[in-house]
Amino acid sequence: MITTANLSKTYGDKQVLNIEHLEIPKGQSFGLVGNNGAGKTTYFSLLLDLIQPTTGHIKNNNVLVHESEDWKPFTSAFIDETFLIGYLTPEEYFYFIGELRGQNKADVDSLIAQFEDFFHGEILGQKKYLRDLSKGNQKKAGIVAALIGNPEVIILDEPFANLDPTTQIRLKGIIKNLAEKQGVTVLVSSHDLMHVTEVCERIVVLEKGAVVKDLATNEATLKELEAHFSGSEVI
């Protein structure tokens, strides 16, 4: 589904990302972990063509991301609050995204109805604009908006941060369901090793912009990741 080749991003003389080859098959739940500055958000921004690659390219479903815009209809994302429109109510925001993605009001209504638990009564019908919601609630709205319009690729940057424990658990359910049952390719980045290992069938560790580990998740993965990040890795 997503092919990354010889991809690098350099600012001045500092290389922040360098991925020689990375192949993410359709329907995979893919986790990206790494310390601050490892290049996670840079990679996601490149995937969404928000920044230009210095060398190389990303192909999303055989569309060259930095040359064509044809990847947009089947790709959606929630990176940060710049993906929210502050002066809209959550409902209006969902309908707006829905209209951009060719969904009518009824489609959107039936989709968000499935996420009533996830919203925990704090999003819909609150008579509040998105800008007046708390960070966590903004995130919930953003994540659900990324699910509108049956995207085939969903990119979520740090989806677990700022969420309360109940919502984190529900979000894990949602992500698993997307990848396993609906064949959606989900890309998630996180600092929380436990969450990623629970949700993702594959985990890639970035360090200073390069892929240093590429693991298929199993029982030992969490231990291995913890060992890696605590620096006490024994090979």
């Binding site: 969404l48 063509d49 928000l50 815009e69 947009k72 209809p73 790709t75 959606s76 994302a77 990176i79 940060d80 710049t82 993906f83 929210l84 429109i85 502050g86 995204i97 951009l100 993605r101």
Partner: peptide
């Protein structure tokens, strides 16, 4: 400008 990244990643 506040939500330009959203606009740029949507099919606009």
């Amino acid at each position: 400008s506040a939500y330009y990244p959203l606009m740029m990643s949507q099919n606009i």
